[in-house]
Design a protein around this nucleic acid. Sequence first.
RNA 1: GGGGAGAUUCCAGAGUGGCCAAAUGGGGCAGACUGUAAAUCUGUUGGUUGAUACCUUCGAAGGUUCGAAUCCUUCUCUCCCCA
Length: 425
Amino acid sequence: MTFIEELKLRGLLQDMIPGTEEFIENNEVKGYIGYDPTAPSLTIGNLVTIMMLVHLQRHGKTPVVLFGGATGRVGDPSGKDAERKLLPEDVIEANLANQVGQFKRLLNFEDGHNKAITVNNYDWFKNIGFIEFLRDAGKHLTINYMMSKESVKRRIETGLSFTEFSYQLLQGYDFYHLYENHGVNLQLGGSDQWGNITTGTELVRRKSGGEVYAAVCPLLTKADGSKFGKSEGGNVWLDPKMTSPYKFYQFFMNAADADVEKMLKIFSLRPIEEILEIIEQHNADPGRRYGQKILAEDATILVHGEEELQKAQDATSLLFGKGTAETLMKLDEETLLSIFDGVPTFHISKTELSAGINIIELLATNTSILSSKGEARREIKGNAISINKTKVTKEDHQVTNADLLNNKYMLVQKGKKNYNLLIAE
RNA sequence: GGGGAGAUUCCAGAGUGGCCAAAUGGGGCAGACUGUAAAUCUGUUGGUUGAUACCUUCGAAGGUUCGAAUCCUUCUCUCCCCA
């Protein structure tokens, strides 16, 4: 199976430059994707395009990760309705350092003829002066060409700064630089990058007369039309400190039936035939959530590893299985802590607790599980609060040392899926 | 440079002196149902409060008034038309 065939079967191919498939099969290929370090961590949205690099490497080609140390300072108008805020430079540097570590888990940077490499476009842009850039890059492309890009057209009515307008030229120059200096001849990415990518291939063609190719994957959407990659109240990050492995696992467990196939093809490295078989089994009895389980397993191993998966599964089986107040009571401290690793924790004083704390105070004042007393009251009225898996129904409920598990911990739950661990000391 | 329209609670968008913490829709959160689903239904969605009530909020700052999101003044920003 060719690389492009693999992408197609996995729903990771939206568009490519004619001839890309033949070229990849018959040449030494180095393919790159650019990531702008505008957040401290990569997200599962980024993971989609990273999977393209993973497959590229598995097909014996060299993946190149380009960090937009320079372009991230400018802001990409693609897919954005409004001008972006510029980030302070030290924030960009910190983000970049963190993201480098995340890639190390996903691609092989260590050995083989096709080990992955990273580059940072700040390294070449920092030495190029504005005049030089205008003569060297700007001269080769017309305004008419740049204006015809969808990302620019969409913003022409509402406004677009010269800075963001120039973004495609910077990104295009990346490709040219990588082609000239690193022999990079393929660019991958999300379909929102198609305009920027073709600017790059155009620039290489005009400046170097070189032969370069590109392919993009579709933007991942959910069956119900909502945005992919967000869960309760935010992004799903790859950084375990920002999205715990447990939450990460749960995100995939909660995938809609209609999305399971699509997501398995993207986030699982199992052969495509096996995935189709899994889907068949899943569809026979969707209520078992077989597809979601495999999906969550594979994705969690990929990003966080076996050990974290095990913990996430332990927590899941306790919290969503037949987990009752009694089983919770029976857990020893070590098991308890490992299961709730990654669940938000709060500390309270044992002396204070021994006197008894009103449940509303506890939720809104002693901890920030809920943001106000009014909200705490509403949630209790709405039957949403549980302590140690037992519903709290009265607003004047007092919590005491007697509620502690192992004389130290308390499990406070809002709704079905939001857990908090209180530690009394 | 000239003329016009506008800025409302997370978003969209009503409200043009007291009945406005502010309609309605979306989104969020929760409950029921269920498969930790989808769809549906219900509740809730500024803060303190048992409730009355009070406090902060309708671009910013002043002012008029017993009383202002609503009227006046100045300022900031956005959009549209003409040059």
